[in-house]
């Protein structure tokens, strides 16, 4: 067993995640590739979305992969940071939106 749960070199193992379930693995990769390739949205736009999701989800592998992809596609540091702020704002907004539940309960319970 390795000393850490997350190791940089584990990112290289991503292509092997179909091991033990190759049929599902192939279906996942077909879906993954078609979803992240350029379509109506450009490859650059999709890379920024993926980076924002990666940071929101705290996935070190995805952050590494998509930071490199954004750099490879010539995206600016400011553009990457803007995308991450979208993710951060969504998380903050999502948290605050759930205050509605708290407020509703408070208003129902308080005298």
């Amino acid at each position: 067993m390795s000393q850490q749960y997350y190791e940089t070199k584990d990112l290289q193992d991503f292509s092997n995640i179909g091991e033990f379930a190759p049929e599902q693995g192939k279906k996942f990769f077909d879906y993954y590739i078609s979803s992240t390739s350029g379509g109506k949205l450009s490859e650059r736009e999709k890379a920024l979305i993926a980076l924002a999701v990666a940071t929101v989800r705290h996935c070190p592998y995805c952050i590494d992969a998509y930071t490199n992809k954004c750099l490879s596609l010539g995206l600016g540091n400011d553009e990457m940071m803007e995308a991450i702020h979208v993710g951060a704002a969504m998380v903050a907004g999502d948290t605050l939106a759930h205050a509605t539940q708290m407020r509703k309960i408070v208003k129902q319970k308080e005298m």
């Binding site: 350029g38 450009s42 490859e43 650059r44 992809k69 750099l71 490879s72 596609l73 010539g74």
Partner: peptide
Amino acid sequence: VHNPVGAFLPGSQTALEEDY
């Protein structure tokens, strides 16, 4: 000519050319 400015590989030539 586009070269990566750092330790990473270049992205898709088509996407980069469009952006340039």
